[in-house]
Design a protein around this nucleic acid. Structure first.
Ligand code: MN
Ligand code: MN
Ligand code: ZN
Ligand code: ZN
Lengths: 150, 150
DNA sequence: TCACCAAGTGAGAAGCGTTCTCACTTGGTG
DNA sequence: CACCAAGTGAGAACGCTTCTCACTTGGTGA
């Protein structure tokens, strides 16, 4: 059942972001736009970018595509921005987390910084830890250089 | 400026959860109810518990109290439940995170499982990490025993 | 090839958690 | 005690997300 959450390990942009769900022409457009995304984005921002590429695609369709991509493990929520969910394309399909640049919005997939002691189905002081969420915020290499000395 | 986010280190239930904000009679009631909370809670659940102790306190007042407690560092968001923010009382006032029992809702403050490599203002592969979020989910000791063999 | 129909779509309405507005009250300060 | 910034309650408003419904699409099997 984990197959639904595993995508093609070859390359950072799998051929489909929707798992086993049907890929309509609208979803193909949305997937192409998402693959071009290098930063975190909201549903509305994605809708605008999609409308720029192919006008007429409804907001509900964008939301439904986001749900499908989330279920497929291709997109994750990495925070909120003004009440809207902040989304990011997962560029790797193993267990990982995200580093969100608070300056340019770029998102980097990072290895799980939690050790074996606090990994899936591990024990911590008598408690059974079954899952976890980690998000790192900071400056990417480029933005770090840009603000050097500021 | 960090003083606003530091509370009395003596004991797990500081005398005020509101930092420097004014403590009205309504907020005193809300603070007492929150201190009795042993599980994560939503704003509506808190409002119901507050109404049980002292009817007439408005939902907006509960939300405003939550905001004040969050700014004071006494309450943190530990997830969502059906679209509502899940909140938890912070039982420690140093840098820490939370383990939420997915069965009984109990919340335990846990030490930051991230090492020095990924701590505040640390560097990771050229990126400057300024903050992070960590939430652990699993079963507390009691619930783990309750489901033994199930 | 073609009928079938589950899955997807678009537009707008609806839902719902949260915030805001406004007239009023409270409580700390001097 | 006067002052007034801060807080309150009720309900309206806001805004993100989901739902509804009639219609279309596209994968599957005969
Ligand atoms: Mn991890
Ligand atoms: Mn930490
Ligand atoms: Zn950046
Ligand atoms: Zn438990």
């Amino acid at each position: 059942m984990d197959a639904d959450h595993q995508r093609d390990p070859n390359g950072p942009t799998p051929s489909t972001l929707y798992g086993t769900a049907r890929v309509s022409v609208q979803r193909a457009v949305i997937a192409r736009v998402v693959r071009e995304m290098r930063t975190a984005f909201t549903a509305e921002e994605l809708h605008l970018a999609v409308a720029d590429a192919s006008p007429g695609i409804g907001l509900a369709t964008v939301y439904r595509a986001i749900s499908a991509m989330q279920e497929a493990g291709a997109v994750m929520t990495v925070g909120d921005r003004d009440g809207s969910a902040l989304l990011a394309l997962c560029v790797r399909n193993d267990h990982h987390h995200h580093l969100v640049c608070t300056r340019c919005g770029r998102v980097l997939g990072v290895e799980c910084p939690l050790g074996d002691a606090v990994s899936s189905a591990a024990t911590r002081e008598g408690h059974l830890i079954t899952s976890h969420e980690v998000v790192l915020y900071g400056l990417c290499v480029d933005c770090r250089e840009g603000t050097r000395g500021a």
